[in-house]
């Protein structure tokens, strides 16, 4: 058992690697610790293996080498206790269930009681008030993604994994969500891992940004973001914010340049 069940769990990746059956090497042995109760953003170029890393942590993919531990236990254990939630890139809402039905399904799957007020609150929070009884087919792409985020949050998991959660959300809503949602997981001290290719989003939402190289993914930079919480939209004009964004960009482009040099040298 974990040392302290109330502490948000650390996520440890130890020599983690994944090579797919076809021989594609998605993640090269990678060791990193995601601190409990913190939000860590993972950025990297498209197709670098970010999502694979997230799926490995979620226990949806079996590592070719190394291991993942969530609070000292394998991911399957966290899954089994219903303490894990993933907001997938594709909202993956079940089309025959309403927004409410999809959110309640998560409670059911995690073996939690269904609290109608809590569900209502989340629906409001993600800006879907009045759409609780609407089926996904009648929602826009951004609305579906917000419903998927509400579903991930409803079980109040210990570990929240977000895979490009705002990709289809329009700019204004994205800003609103970026402001509102972190309050939920911060208040509960949820360990959050956010995969994104938006550098601004990574810096705005997280306490720490990890930069991955082009495929196969390895860590090329790991930097703390020292901005006060709660974050406000106007912080994006602060010099500290811009400095962090610049640093992440620099690390990203350096790794991509190295990669294209390596290709040119071959």
């Amino acid at each position: 058992m974990r040392a302290d069940a109330d502490m948000p769990p650390d996520v440890l990746c130890d020599g983690l690697a994944k090579t797919f059956d076809g021989g594609v090497e998605a993640v090269r042995p990678l060791s990193v610790r995601f601190e409990g109760g913190h939000t860590t953003a993972v950025v990297g170029p498209s197709g670098c293996g970010k999502s694979t890393l997230l799926r490995l942590i979620a226990g949806l993919e079996r590592p070719s080498a190394g291991r993942v531990e969530i609070g000292g236990l394998p991911p399957a254990e966290t899954q089994r206790r219903g303490e894990l939630a993933v907001a997938f890139q594709d909202p993956s809402l079940l089309p025959w269930r309403s927004v409410r039905g999809n959110i309640e399904l998560a409670l059911h799957l995690a073996r939690r009681p269904v609290a109608a007020a809590h569900v209502e609150h989340l629906v409001r929070l993600v800006g879907l008030e009045g759409f609780a009884d609407t089926r996904p087919a009648e929602l826009s792409g951004g609305m579906r993604q917000r419903a998927a985020i509400a579903r991930a949050l409803v079980t109040e998991p210990e570990l929240l994994l977000l895979d490009e959660p705002f990709a289809a959300v329009d700019e204004l809503t994205r800003q609103q969500l970026a402001q509102d949602l972190p309050r939920i997981w911060e208040a509960r001290g949820t360990t959050t891992i956010l995969v994104t290719h938006s550098v601004n989003e990574a810096v705005m939402l997280s306490d720490r940004v990890i930069v991955l190289s082009p495929r196969p993914a390895t860590v090329v930079a790991d930097m703390a973001i020292d901005l006060p919480r709660p974050r406000e939209p106007e912080m994006s004009r602060w010099p500290e914010f811009m400095a962090s964004v610049d640093a992440v960009f620099a690390a990203l482009s350096a790794s991509m340049a190295r990669n294209s040099l390596a290709i040119a040298a071959q």
Partner: peptide, 20 residues
């Protein structure tokens, strides 16, 4: 991804059959 959703809550093929 629907199957992944089921698995991420630790549910196996029976739940997947029923719910999905």
């Amino acid at each position: 991804s629907w199957i992944d959703l089921m698995r991420s809550y630790g549910r196996g093929s029976f739940s997947t059959l029923v719910h999905v």
